[in-house]
């Protein structure tokens, strides 16, 4: 059975009283260990789909099942717990907390667990080691380069070992070389068994994915990406 089963997802927004369909009847089945690239032009609905898959944006209609859990049948607070347990996020612009060091940013998802400070620190250092940044753990985000900030964002997303990682334009704010580094890291994490869903409009990122899903005008056009 697929890890993620999205069926007939539709999202309609009201803009000044005018209904606008951002996503139309999207269905998607994702197996554990897949690396999905959601691609499409701006405003096509790919970010809307990602936020629905990220248990943050209830669809107007349709169903999302993750690991047998019907996500949008959960209460708001239970969905928060679900996100904590199942999902890691790498946001556009990376979104590190500026007043927390790299290690503190990394351990952010652990702050709401009962783990001891030492346990949290050990886990954060482990995650930073995985992204090759353990030596800069004490630095604040503004003391890191763009690529390093990207790696901290990835460390934060994987620190509590979620089965699924969602990334929204993770290379959008990076130069091509550091973007390449981040994509290599994603590939390596995916090879380690992590299911990855990434929104990107950069065609150079597509070859890293095991499958490319094209979205246009809220409609899904599924394709197959080449493995690199």
């Amino acid at each position: 059975m697929a890890l993620i089963e999205a069926t007939g997802l539709t999202k309609q927004y009201n803009t000044n009283g005018v209904p606008v369909e951002a996503l139309r009847n999207a269905s998607l089945s994702i197996d554990a260990g897949e690396f999905i690239a959601l691609m499409g032009p701006s405003g096509s609905g790919k970010s809307t789909l990602l936020s629905i898959l990220g248990a943050m944006n209830p669809p107007t209609s349709g169903k999302l099942i993750v690991d047998t859990i019907s996500v949008y049948d959960l209460t708001v607070e239970m969905r928060a717990d679900f996100r904590h347990e199942y999902l890691g996020f790498v946001f556009q612009q990376l979104q590190l907390i500026p007043y927390l060091s790299a290690v503190e940013n990394t351990m952010l998802p652990l702050a709401i667990t009962r783990r001891s400070h030492k346990e949290q620190t050990d886990m954060a250092i482990w995650a930073l080691e995985r992204v090759g940044l353990a030596d800069k753990a004490a630095r604040l985000p503004d003391q890191l380069s763009g690529g390093e900030q990207g790696r901290v964002a990835i460390a934060r997303a994987i620190v509590n070992e979620p089965p699924i990682l969602l990334a929204d334009e993770p290379t959008g704010s990076l130069d091509s070389r550091t973007g390449q580094e981040v994509m290599d890291l994603f590939k390596s994490l995916n090879e380690g068994g992590l299911t990855l869903i990434m929104v990107t409009h950069n065609p150079e990122n597509a070859p890293f994915a095991s499958r490319v899903v094209q979205i246009r005008d809220g409609c899904m056009i599924e394709g197959v990406g080449a493995l690199r």
């Binding site: 990220g54 928060a80 904590h84 996020f89 979104q95 907390i97 952010l108």
Partner: peptide, 16 residues
């Protein structure tokens, strides 16, 4: 707002 959005996205409850 964005920072709080991050907290909520990574699983912080309202009470957190």
């Amino acid at each position: 707002t964005r920072e709080i959005g991050i907290f909520r996205a990574i699983g912080f409850r309202k009470s957190h």
